[in-house]
Design a protein around this nucleic acid. Structure first.
Lengths: 175, 175
DNA sequence: CAGTAATTTCAGTAAAAACAGAAATTAATA
DNA sequence: TATTAATTTCTGTTTTTACTGAAATTACTG
């Protein structure tokens, strides 16, 4: 499959953005491609469309599946695996939030708690301990906020964030 | 300066988290160090504490300054530059949000608008165009949301997010 | 303004990550 | 069950990013 210019630009930009947020470029590109395509694609098609190695696609798809962003589909009369992603940005957003929550927020909470519970914290300055505590509180709030978003249905989430964003745009008053 | 065990763990963990979010490890470590120290440090001290090259520290500090996360301070009777960061997690959060907003969100909005305005969008499937539009709306909401947070004073922001997080934790009702 | 301290720049090196291609494995078909 | 298709694993290469150390520059001091 040959990518048309707009789709190509989208996919490349998404890959670029991915890198800036710690996501492998190819992984991000594949996801963008499946999202734009809006239909299941097999690995070979992805490979030829993006012009990367077949093995690269295989590994990247595994990565995307581990984030629940991509799932395998089987079409009747075709033994190949096909891959698809949600076409709902808000659902995708939630999946990414869920992933980062458990991969980054949770371990950080654990690490900071261990810091605070460790008796050698006594060796540190009081201010240092306080700041670690503040950091922990901050991260915990982020975690709870993530949960809150995860509990909302996509439409509700979109409306809630969208509306609150629009209000703040209109009201324009100091807090 | 020799790092005490808890501070070391914190700094290393922060460096690790940085990498996962697209921030250079040393950059993140230096920031964590200044944050925990809660006092201005000169480049030489940072260098010896973290055990990295002086030039690495110099460049990383430049990076941190470009994000407004670190500022130069001069102490009387000392010709060396000293560096400090805010000890307020919420203020730091806002600075990071502001930076990512203008470095990632804004350019993405531009790119997606260009995609949609480009006449060759006609070559794409209608669904593809729609999804690019959805994505643009999503990113714009994220941008507005970022602005909203930036307009709040740290205490207000903390209370708003903190309280809303806590409520959602307690109420536990479906949306 | 000569000398020294502090900082930055730069060129080269090292480390890490991304990627390709071949080989191996697994799964399906005839 | 032999053959082929599809996928994954593995090893080595390339590319990128991070980093070092020396040299150059800038800023200060006596």
């Amino acid at each position: 499959m040959e990518l048309k210019p707009i789709a190509e630009r989208f996919v490349l930009h998404w890959g670029e953005m991915g890198s800036r947020w710690g996501v492998n470029r190819t992984v991000a590109q594949i996801h963008a491609l499946l999202y734009l395509a809006g239909r299941p694609m097999d690995a070979e098609e992805i490979t030829s469309t993006l012009g990367v190695a077949r093995s690269n696609v295989s590994n990247s798809l595994k990565e995307l599946q581990s984030w629940n962003l991509v799932r395998i589909i089987h079409l009747k009369g075709d033994r190949r695996d096909h891959f698809e992603t949600s076409t709902d940005v808000w659902e995708l957003f939630k999946l990414i939030v869920a992933g980062r929550r458990q991969r980054e927020i949770d371990p950080t909470v654990v690490a900071l708690r261990e810091c605070l519970d460790n008796p050698v914290i006594e060796e540190e300055h009081e201010g240092t301990r306080q700041r670690i505590e503040e950091t922990l509180k901050f991260i915990e709030i982020m975690g709870t906020l993530a949960d809150e978003m995860l509990r909302l249905k996509p439409e509700t989430l979109m409306k809630t964030l969208g509306v609150s964003a629009r209000i703040s745009q209109v009201v324009r008053r100091k807090p």
